[in-house]
Design a protein around this nucleic acid. Structure first.
Lengths: 205, 205
DNA sequence: GATACCATGTAAGTCGTTACATGATTAT
DNA sequence: ATAATCATGTAACGACTTACATGGTATC
C-alpha cells in the first residue's frame, strides 16, 4: 500500500508533468492546500513511485546546477490514483496542539491566556486574509475555473476547505476569548455567546 | 523539548491522577477530543515523563493481572505545562486525505464520486450526532461545567471545537456534492451554492 | 556582500501505528 | 464458549522533520 503523500503527488502529476521542486513548492507549509510536506520527504517518495512504474522521469540537463528532473504520471499511476480515490477513507486523527492549550488554559494566569488567544486570533486572521486573496484571484481571473469540470476545480475545492477551516478555528478562538472575558468581568454577560446551535450549512439555507 | 503528546498527558494528569490505561481510553480514536494516541505510544511516553521528574507513579498491586500504575503530575510537571501553554504555537500541518480525493475527484466516474461523497457525509453526520449527544449530556448534567472556571471547561472547549470542525467538514462535502450534481444535470442551477461569503462568526453577530 | 530562490539529494532522529505478548474479569 | 474490557508493556516498521551537503542565478 502507498502513503497518502504518494497519492497527493500522483494527484499533482495528473494535472501536468512536474519536477520534485515544483511539487515541493505546492506542498510547502503553511500554504500547501492539498497536502503539506518538505522536500526531504518528497524526493525519496518520487523515486519510489518511479521504481513502482507509476511515474516516469525525464532528465533535462542544464548548463549549471543539478539537472531538472521532470516527472510524468503513467497510465498505471492514473489507474492506481482513481482506484484509491473511490474507496472510502477512514478519518485521520487531526491532532491539534492548540486544543491541548485550550484544555488546560484555566491553569495559566488570565492575562497570559488572553494574550495567547489574541495572538492566535491574529495569526488566523492573517492566514484567512491570504487565503481570501487567493480566492479572489481565482474567481476574478476566470469564472469557469470554479466549475466542477474545470481542470482547476481541485485547487478551488482545497482552497474553499482551507478557508472554511481557518474561519471555524478563528471562531472557536473568539468563543474561548469571550468565555475567558466573561469570567474576568462577570458583570458583562452580554459578551457570552449562545450554546452550540445549528450548523452554518443549515443556517445558510 | 517534549512532544505534544507529553503535554496532552500532563494536561490530563493535571485534572487528576490516572493510570496509563485511563489516559489511553481518553485518547482513543475516534472520540479522543483532546489528542489521539494508542497505548503503544502512551506507555513509553509516560515512562519518559517519570524519568524526567514531571510525573510520579504509584504502583498498586492487585490479586490478578499486572499492577495498576497510577500517575500523578509533580510540581515540576505543572510548571512545565503552564510554561508551554503560554508560548504561542506554530500551526500544525493538518493534512487530510480527503482533500486529495476531492482535488482529483473529477478524474473518477460521476457515480463513484457521488457515492463517495454520500458515504463521507453520512460518516460525518454520525460523528456529529455522537458529539452532540456528548454535548447534550454536558449541558444538561451541570450547567456550570461549561463555565471557564469550571474544572471541566477544558473538555467542553475541546468538544465544541470537534463539533465545529465536523460540521465545517460536512458542509464542505455537501458543497462538493452540489457542484458535482450541477455538472451532472446542468439545468438545475438552483442547487449551486453561492461563493464563499462572510464567516459564520461574522454572521452570528 | 547578503539574502532569497532554483534544484537535487541523503542521514539522523522523532513521532506514530501495528502487531506481538500476557493474563484476569465480565457480559452475551 | 466467545467477545469485550481491564491492564501493562515491547518491537518493528513507516511517516515526517531537521539538518547536512552542493552549487548556480538573481535581487537588494
Amino acid at each position: 500500500m502507498l502513503s497518502s503523500l504518494s497519492y497527493a503527488i500522483l494527484a499533482l502529476l495528473a494535472t501536468k508533468p512536474q519536477s520534485g521542486y515544483d511539487i515541493a513548492r505546492q506542498m510547502r507549509p503553511p500554504l500547501g492546500l492539498l497536502w503539506q510536506a518538505k522536500h526531504g520527504q518528497i524526493y525519496p517518495e518520487l523515486a519510489r513511485l518511479v521504481k513502482l512504474g507509476l511515474v516516469e522521469v525525464e532528465r533535462i540537463d542544464k548548463q549549471s546546477g543539478p539537472p531538472r528532473r521532470v516527472h510524468t504520471i503513467t497510465a498505471a499511476g492514473r489507474s492506481e490514483l482513481t482506484r484509491w480515490i473511490v474507496k472510502s477513507p477512514q478519518a485521520r486523527p487531526a491532532n491539534d496542539e492548540f486544543v491541548i492549550k485550550a484544555y488546560a488554559l484555566r491553569r495559566v494566569p488570565l492575562g497570559a491566556a488572553t494574550s495567547l488567544l489574541n495572538d492566535q486570533i491574529q495569526t488566523h486572521e492573517h492566514r484567512i486574509a491570504a487565503l481570501e486573496q487567493l480566492h479572489q484571484a481565482f474567481v476574478s481571473r476566470n469564472t469557469k475555473a470554479t466549475a466542477f469540470d474545470s481542470p482547476r476545480f481541485g485547487e478551488y475545492a482545497a482552497l474553499r476547505r482551507a478557508i472554511g477551516f481557518e474561519r471555524e478555528h478563528a471562531a472557536w478562538c473568539r468563543w474561548l476569548l469571550s468565555e475567558l472575558t466573561a469570567t474576568e468581568k462577570p458583570g458583562r454577560k452580554g459578551v457570552r455567546q449562545p450554546a452550540v446551535g445549528r450548523s452554518s450549512a443549515a443556517r445558510r439555507k
